[in-house]
């Protein structure tokens, strides 16, 4: 059914204000099922806020966010239901430090979706094996490297069987040598057909993996297109300036 839908996410004239500061100034974005969209742009451009609006961690000031045909900005929408469909991975991992890897993975599906322990455990083992972390099942987060923690965080989000995955600068806090293992996990996920919205500074990843690249600046989408278009022949001056800064750095 999802595959038949033309767009899985439709964002229309989305605005978000923090006090006097308007961070999103009318964003329009449509995402097709299984599409991987990378959002790039300077810090403070509103990329993360846009992402956080999609699972309502930030409440939009105005505009529409339509997920699978349902407008999330309407009153009466069950936020907890929506969030089960939209997984998010954060820059700072945010694993639960008092729980083991296994407990981190099992907590939400068992308590929120009321799925059986056996079913969840089977899924957790499958995910961790794919991530190469099966032997860390009983470890606590502080016994893992940053890269391992971030992969556990991805697995934790996938436990809920989301239709969309959001990635908020997930490699920015990692030591350079640990970035690759996390990006590889994301590539595998993209190859498996997951719809992904990725805020990133990893231009190599954006270029290689994404179906579409969106450049944001000052709260609006300045330019979007296929990665080869954006990276080799950007049309907008601000896109050009940004890319020349980050690609030569």
């Amino acid at each position: 059914m999802l595959k038949d839908m033309q767009f899985i996410i439709e964002i229309e004239d989305l605005r978000k204000r923090f006090g006097d500061n308007e961070v999103l100034k009318g964003v329009n974005l449509k995402v097709k099922p299984s599409e991987v969209v990378c959002i790039i742009g300077p810090s403070g451009s509103g990329k993360s806020t846009l992402l956080r609006c999609v699972n309502l961690l930030e409440k939009p000031s105005s505009g529409k966010i339509i997920l699978e045909g349902i407008d999330l900005t309407q009153p009466g929408v069950d936020i907890n239901k929506v969030r089960q469909k939209v997984g998010i991975v954060f820059q700072s991992y945010n694993l639960f430090p008092h729980l083991t890897v296994e407990q981190n993975l099992l907590l939400a599906p068992m308590r929120v979706q009321k799925r059986s322990r056996e079913e969840c455990l089977e899924k957790a083992e499958k995910l961790l094996r794919r991530m190469g972390l099966i032997e860390k099942m009983r470890a606590y987060p502080d016994q893992l490297s940053g890269g391992q923690q971030q992969r556990v965080a991805i697995a934790r989000a996938l436990m809920m069987d989301p239709d969309v995955m959001l990635f908020d600068e997930v490699t920015s806090a990692l030591d350079p040598e640990l970035v690759k293992e996390v990006l590889d996990a994301m590539k595998e996920l993209a190859a498996g057909g997951m719809t992904m919205l990725v805020v990133t500074h990893e231009m190599g990843f954006a270029r290689e993996v994404s179906d579409r690249v969106v450049f944001m600046d000052h709260g609006v989408i300045v330019e979007e297109g296929k990665p080869e278009e954006i990276f080799t022949a950007p049309k907008n001056r601000r896109t050009k300036e940004f890319l020349s800064r980050v690609l030569t750095a």
Partner: peptide, 10 residues
């Protein structure tokens, strides 16, 4: 921590 928990639908 609260955000991570809420984002999992809790």
């Amino acid at each position: 921590q609260m955000e991570a928990a809420r984002s999992l639908g809790m």
